[in-house]
C-alpha cells in the first residue's frame, strides 16, 4: 500500500532523514521506533507532505505522491494524527470532526448550506466509535489531555482514511489513557480494517499491537521485520545502547 524508498531530507546540511525505506501492506499495523532524534517525526512529515523530501520517492497505492501538497495527499486516503495535540480548540468536539468530514465530502467551498444539518450522522458515528459522544458539544479546548488526543484521532477518521499515520499516539498519557488508546487502535485495525503506521516510545505498546516494526537510527532505517525478529536483532540492540528509550518504556 505504501512504499518509501531511500528518502532523504536535508535541513541546511543536517540530514534529518538519510535513506529511510518502508513498506506497508493493506491491513497491517506497523510501528516505527528509534531513539530520540532518529528522524521519525520528520519521516512522517515527509510522507504526509508537510515537508518536501530532498530526494527519494513515496508511493501510495501504486501512485507517486512525492512532493504533492498535504491537502491533496489527504484526499487520496492517507491521514495523520499528531504527537502534540493539534485540534481546532475554539470549535466544539462535534465541529472538530465535522470539519474533516465536510472537507472529505468536498463541501469546502459550499457557502450557503446549513452546516448544522450536514454530515451529522457520520460525525456522530465517529464520535461514538471513539467514545467522545457525551462531550460532542463541549468546546474542544477545554477537554482533558487524554480526550484531546482521542479527538485528534477522531478528526483523522473524519477523512475516512485507508492509511492512518499516528505520531506517538500515547505521548504524555496516563496508563489508563494509554490503555484506552491501545484498545481504540486495535478496534480501528480489527473492525474497520484500517492500515496504521505509528511511531512510539512505549515498547510495551509497540509489541502489543504492531504486526511489523521498523527501526530508525540517525535518519536511516536499519531494519523492518516481525517484532520477534526485531527484538533479537543485533543492530537494533546497538542502536539503543546508550540510548535509554527501551528501558524508559
Amino acid at each position: 500500500m505504501l512504499q518509501v524508498k531511500s528518502l532523504t531530507k536535508n535541513f541546511d546540511g543536517f540530514m534529518a532523514v538519510n535513506g529511510a525505506g518502508l513498506s506497508l501492506e493493506k491491513g497491517q499495523v506497523i510501528a516505527v521506533i528509534g531513539p530520540n532524534g532518529a528522524g521519525k517525526t520528520t519521516l512522517f512529515n515527509l510522507i504526509t507532505g508537510q515537508l518536501a523530501p530532498t530526494s527519494g520517492t513515496i508511493r501510495f497505492k501504486g501512485e507517486d505522491i512525492t512532493g504533492i501538497p498535504p491537502y491533496a495527499i489527504v484526499r487520496k486516503g492517507l491521514c495523520r494524527s499528531y504527537q502534540v495535540v493539534n485540534i481546532f480548540n475554539r470549535l466544539t468536539v462535534f465541529e472538530n470532526v465535522q470539519v474533516a468530514v465536510l472537507s472529505r465530502r468536498k463541501h469546502t467551498f459550499n457557502l450557503f448550506s446549513n452546516a448544522r444539518r450536514m454530515a451529522v450522522n457520520e460525525t456522530s458515528r465517529i464520535l461514538e466509535s471513539v467514545g467522545l459522544k457525551d462531550m460532542a458539544h463541549s468546546i474542544s479546548g477545554s477537554l482533558s489531555h487524554g480526550d484531546q488526543k482521542v479527538l485528534e484521532i477522531a478528526i483523522s477518521l473524519g477523512n475516512r482514511p485507508e492509511l492512518l499515520i499516528m505520531d506517538e499516539p500515547t505521548a504524555g498519557m496516563s496508563p489508563e489513557e494509554t490503555e484506552v488508546t491501545l484498545s481504540l487502535m486495535k478496534k480501528l485495525s480489527d473492525e474497520m480494517g484500517l492500515t496504521i503506521l505509528f511511531c512510539e516510545h512505549d515498547m510495551n505498546m509497540v509489541f502489543a499491537i504492531a504486526h511489523e516494526i521498523m527501526v530508525m537510527q540517525q535518519g536511516k532505517s536499519i531494519i523492518q521485520g516481525k517484532p520477534d525478529a526485531v527484538r533479537v536483532d543485533k543492530q537494533v540492540q546497538e542502536a539503543y545502547l546508550g540510548g535509554d528509550d527501551i528501558c524508559y518504556a
Binding site: Q50, Y71, C79, F88, R90, L91, S156
Partner: peptide, 14 residues
C-alpha cells in the same frame, strides 16, 4: 473557523 484555529491541522484534513 477550523483554519483560524489551526491552519496546519486544516491542511492535514484536506
Amino acid at each position: 473557523q477550523g483554519v483560524r484555529d489551526n491552519p496546519e491541522r486544516s491542511e492535514a484534513v484536506g
